[in-house]
């Protein structure tokens, strides 16, 4: 059963009762909230995620609720927490949903140490994944959104999860988060992309979320090996360039890009080495999404 199959009343009953238990990739999450405003957005943007019963063991238990009973009425603010103290400061109710999204990412980033976590977008085609590691602001999520609406299967726009035992990439098709100018770029590039509301004035500027294509969620238990690593960088007006880079440089860039390289230690070293030794690795500078997609399509034929 998927979240979209719940009625609003059933969804609310779960959120305010035992929790909404759902799956995303390898994780089982439980969310509690009494925020009425979350109902519609969850129903629409989380539509395709499977619902789990309450009896399983959760990976993450999250709550997004009023910071205090009084703050529901007076300059209303909400608080995200997950199995302990709140990791973020309270935010106005108008930013509740982006905070939930950042909160889920935070949960994964600080605790999912059974996998090596790259800060990367990942998409799959023909049974192999294209890994797009990049720093914030590099156009990673924009490129990922465009690819995942151009025939590629979305693994993640944020986390490249690698299972050390077999070096397979693990899908975690969460919502794609776009910021500022990227929102209009993807609206124009892919009119079929399913957008939620745009939240203005967050600490990252304006933020909007895209629902993952349903097939990406349906196939979220299908892992795949890596085929290519491309470090993307969007630069206004830049000519399209795709250049191979030296393996040792790629190793350094990937190791320093990982969230938990130091935590996994020896396992991380071997996992990064396997990735570097078994992939073609490039840097990509682009200013035009269509050109970027075309060259990546050609690269991965």
């Amino acid at each position: 059963m998927m979240i979209s199959e719940l009625t609003a009343t059933e969804l609310q009953a779960r959120l305010t009762g035992g929790g909404l238990c759902f799956g995303c990739g390898p994780f089982r999450l439980r969310l509690n909230s009494s925020l009425q405003s979350l109902l519609t957005v969850l129903h629409e943007l989380y539509a395709h995620y499977p619902i789990y019963d309450h009896s399983g063991v959760d990976d993450y238990r999250m709550t997004l609720d009023w910071a205090s009973p009084l703050r529901r009425w007076l300059r209303p603010v909400v608080r995200f927490s997950a199995d302990g103290p709140a990791p973020f400061t309270d935010v106005p109710i108008t930013r509740a949903f982006p905070t939930l999204e950042w909160g889920m990412n935070w949960c994964i980033a600080i605790r999912a140490h059974h996998v090596l976590m790259l800060h990367a977008a990942v998409v799959e085609r023909h049974g192999r994944v294209l890994v797009l590691p990049a720093a914030p602001g590099s156009g990673k999520s924009t490129l990922c959104a465009a690819l995942s609406h151009s025939g590629w299967r979305l693994f993640s726009d944020e986390f490249g999860l690698i299972r050390p035992e077999d070096n397979a990439f693990v899908p975690i098709p969460r919502l794609i988060s776009l910021k500022n100018q990227s929102i209009a770029v993807i609206r124009q590039f892919s009119p079929t992309a399913y957008f939620g509301a745009t939240y203005h004035g967050t600490h990252k500027g304006s933020v909007a979320h895209i629902r993952p294509p349903q097939a990406s969620v349906t196939r979220m238990t299908e892992l795949a090996p890596a085929g290519w690593v491309v470090f993307p960088r969007w630069q206004a007006g830049a000519a399209l360039t795709l250049q191979p880079i030296a393996k040792e440089r790629a190793f350094m860039m990937i190791a320093s890009n990982a969230f938990n390289y130091e935590v996994l230690g020896e396992q991380a070293f071997k996992t990064v080495a396997h990735l570097v030794n078994n992939c073609k690795i490039y840097t990509l500078v682009y200013s035009d999404l269509t050109q970027a997609i075309r060259i990546l399509d050609e690269l991965t034929q």
């Binding site: 393996k247 040792e248 230690g265 020896e266 070293f269 080495a273 570097v276 030794n277």
Partner: peptide, 18 residues
Amino acid sequence: LHWEQWDEQFALYQVASG
């Protein structure tokens, strides 16, 4: 120690220090 080599460049992992 764990070694990886690419041409004349090396990455080295020291287990004791991480």
